[in-house]
């Protein structure tokens, strides 16, 4: 019988094919270098100009972190208020839900006028951009808590503070975490997009700068860095997720490589 290859090995094979293609296709001139410089050339540029790319990465990273702080802090606080108080929810939630669909990038020219072309405009823009998913999922996480959970806690004599800390927070955490994960990704996107539009520093700025002078290897070097940044971010959220909400039964995630049988090993003692 033929054994099916594991999804994990298929994924690795695809990655290797992709990277090989990136190296081979431009080197054999099937694709012109201007469109796609080879992987080795891209990496060599990255190593050659490591000072430029390194400092650009630091600028971008600093902006992303601050944007995440704004989005997560503000989003969780606002979400808790909207999710916890029905009066505020009925007034504001429709507004927030509608605003969610507005392309917030239209705000960016205004923000640069107010805050200049330096990091503050990027931080505020990406912070606002990432705020909504965090807020909406926090509100949803709190609103959808099983009321039975709170009834049980009350029957045990839990006071309001204990109900919040020991029941509401852990019960809402998985939903909130999904929002944080999405919000964090949007913060990265927001910062890079903003840097590409108007900036004097950062990785997004390097993309735009080198594109205008048709220096493809340097454009792709910047793209590669953004890609690595996103992957690093994803790994961080996974580690955090494993620590914070390890109790959530294994979901079927297309990206999850970890298989666990623990959910299926229920033994009957009754």
């Amino acid at each position: 019988m033929i054994t099916r290859p594991s999804p994990r090995s298929v994924r690795w094979a695809m990655l290797i094919i992709l990277l090989t293609g990136w190296q081979v296709l431009p080197a054999t001139r099937i694709i012109p270098e201007l469109f796609l410089p080879s992987l080795s050339k891209t990496i060599s540029v990255l190593i050659l100009d490591w000072r430029i790319y390194g400092s650009a990465l630091l600028v971008t990273l600093g902006e992303v972190v601050l944007a995440m702080v704004i989005a997560c802090g503000g989003g969780i606080a606002a979400g808790a208020i909207v999710g916890g108080f029905s009066l505020i929810r009925t007034i504001f939630l429709p507004i927030f839900s509608s605003l969610y669909a507005v392309p917030i990038v239209i705000l960016y020219p205004v923000l640069t006028a107010w805050l200049g072309v330096g990091p503050p405009s990027k931080i505020v823009f990406a912070g606002v951009y990432a705020f909504f998913p965090v807020m909406l999922s926090t509100a949803a996480g709190i609103r959808t808590i099983d009321p039975q959970f709170l009834l049980v806690a009350r029957s045990m004599g839990a006071n309001l503070l204990q109900q919040v800390l020991l029941v509401i927070v852990p019960a809402a955490l998985p939903t909130i975490f999904n929002g944080l994960r999405l919000g964090g990704a949007l913060a990265i996107i927001g910062v890079v997009v903003a840097e590409m539009l108007t900036a004097a520093a950062g990785i997004g700025y390097l993309v735009t700068l080198n594109r205008t002078i048709l220096d493809s290897p340097r454009v792709f070097a910047a793209l590669l860095m953004i890609l690595l940044l996103s992957i690093a971010y994803d790994i961080c959220t996974r580690l955090l997720e494993a620590r914070l909400i390890s109790w959530v039964p294994q979901r079927q995630s297309p990206l999850a490589g970890r298989g666990s049988l623990s959910a299926n090993t229920t033994t009957s003692a009754a």
Binding site: F149, L166, P170, A171
Partner: peptide
């Protein structure tokens, strides 16, 4: 809870706590 304990229709265990921690929950309260 010093006088009355309640067992509900749905087991209503907290999914983020182990069996032992669920049982210990009223004690930590």
């Amino acid at each position: 809870p010093q006088r009355v304990g309640v067992v509900f229709q749905e087991a209503s265990l907290y999914p983020w706590l182990t069996a032992a921690d669920n049982v210990a929950f009223p004690l930590s309260i």
